[in-house]
Amino acid sequence: MREEEKKRSSLKNFFKKRWVFPAIYLASAALLISMLFWYQSAGKNTADDQNLTKNSKNLTGMSGEDSVVEVNQAFENVAMPVKNEDEANIVTQFFDTKASTEEKEAALIVDGSTYRPNMGVDIAMKDGSEFEVVASLSGKVDSARQDPLLGNVIEIEHENGIKTIYQSVKDMKVKTGEHVKQGDVLATSGTSQFNKEAKTHVHFEIRKDNTALNPIDFFGQPFTAFEKVEKPADTSGETNNEVEEGTGDSEQEQTETGKELQPEKKETEE
């Protein structure tokens, strides 16, 4: 009992000292002021970050995600739309009007009695198995649609008017408006009614301003290589035997126009 009374007595004596309450008041005030400054500073930093993000989007005209996709894309090399290029094989070449007669004939797709130029390349596995179709370049999915004739179609937009097209696919993993990175899985290889001879494959096209380019010329090349592509000359005076270079007709457009092409025959000497 005496010890408790001594403790209470000492505590009362402590609070009777003149400097105790002012010290407690000053410490409380300092703590309160510190908390106010911290709260205001945190709120200001958050507002600044939001304004910076908003201003950045307004200045560039795109969101942060768009910026990342475009920056990465500028430093990418054009890749084949497969995970393992060593296991892939090009079964149908691109129709190039400057190629030899034999090469042109090899790049024609036989549709009954009609011959149509291949505006891309048809890629299949060497063992004929199905495979995952991946994005050749980073970009934005412009269209992912079903097509019973072409075996479904995925179109991806890139910078500077470049577009990559993936046809004859199934089990599509992407939707219109989505952003994809190079190497992302887009779909699974499939077949098409348009080119049955290719069997399980992916029909891959590269276009610049809707002009078909030979993908083989760009595989492994930096994205900046597209800047060197010149606008094709007017070939409207050529015959139907020689397909207009860069007409921009996709396989779908060719089926709609029904344009018939006959393989070129070698001229015989008189």
Rank of each mutant, 00 (worst) to 15 (best):
D49W: 05
V185P: 01
N72Q: 02
N72L: 08
T188V: 09
I165V: 10
S67C: 03
F37A: 00
S9H: 09
K175L: 01
V243T: 09
K104M: 11
F223E: 01
N51V: 05
K7T: 10
L26I: 13
L150P: 06
A144G: 05
L11Q: 12
D209T: 11
T268Q: 06
F94H: 07
E105K: 15
K126Q: 13
T191C: 11
R8F: 14
M62D: 04
A107E: 00
V134A: 03
E244F: 03
D209E: 09
T191M: 07
L213F: 08
L26E: 12
D217V: 00
M125D: 04
E102T: 00
S9R: 03
S192M: 13
S28K: 04
F14S: 04
A107I: 01
V174H: 01
T255K: 15
H179W: 05
W19I: 14
S28R: 09
S250H: 06
E227C: 11
K54E: 01
A99I: 00
K181S: 07
T53A: 02
T211R: 07
E256R: 15
S138W: 01
Q146F: 14
A79V: 02
N89S: 15
K126C: 08
A88I: 07
T257G: 10
T211K: 08
A23E: 12
L261I: 12
I90Y: 03
T176P: 02
V202I: 07
V202D: 04
G246H: 02
T200K: 14
G61P: 01
I162G: 04
F219H: 08
Q252K: 14
V110K: 15
V71I: 09
L137K: 01
K259P: 15
E245H: 11
D86S: 13
L59Q: 13
Q252C: 09
E102A: 02
K57N: 10
T235G: 14
L261K: 11
N160S: 13
Y39I: 05
R116H: 13
D234Y: 15
L186R: 00
S41V: 15
S67N: 06
V185H: 01
